[in-house]
């Protein structure tokens, strides 16, 4: 089926099967930052924004993008780089495979929460698994980023 949607502020028409998930559609469209780590809706790697909300693209059927606005890390490179610089300065990207989804969640949090506490930060980011870093460096980076703005 054809899906008319907005991807990274650009109106596009995508072709997708009924049972195709958005993560695959976006990768096929060339957005290779979309990673999948679990197949069971629980690792957060594939996080994109749908109408600004962080959402699992692996569990969203592609047709539901119809009329919505999809944002991937390719579409917010400027802000993503600002945070990535802090993250990388901490060494907390490690293998980097979970980083795009993680960064999309961090940026969504920044838009959604005002001056979050450490506890609120941890809570908001819990759905992003990471096997390399042990999370502490990510937390240091997020705290620095939000203070620095």
């Amino acid at each position: 089926m054809q899906i008319e949607t907005t991807i990274n502020n650009k109106k596009v028409t995508l072709e997708a099967a009924n049972d195709e998930f958005l993560a695959d559609t976006l990768r096929n469209y060339g957005l290779l930052s979309i990673r999948q780590g679990c197949d069971t809706s629980c690792c957060g790697l594939c996080t994109v924004w749908i109408d600004g909300k962080p959402t699992l693209s692996c569990s969203t059927l592609a047709f539901r993008a119809q009329g919505r606005s999809i944002t991937t890390i390719e579409g917010v490179q400027q802000e993503a780089k600002k945070f990535a610089e802090v993250l990388v300065a901490e060494g907390a990207e490690q293998c980097g495979f979970c980083s795009p989804g993680f960064i999309m969640t961090v940026l969504a949090m920044k838009n959604e929460l005002n001056h979050p506490t450490e506890e609120e930060i941890v809570h908001y980011l819990t759905g992003n698994l990471c096997r390399c870093t042990g999370y502490m460096g990510q937390l240091r980076a997020v705290k620095k980023y939000l203070e620095v703005k």
Partner: peptide, 12 residues
């Protein structure tokens, strides 16, 4: 509900 997986899951 707030401990279930993560925000991106709960948004789905």
């Amino acid at each position: 509900v707030n401990n279930i997986i993560g925000v991106q899951f709960r948004n789905v």
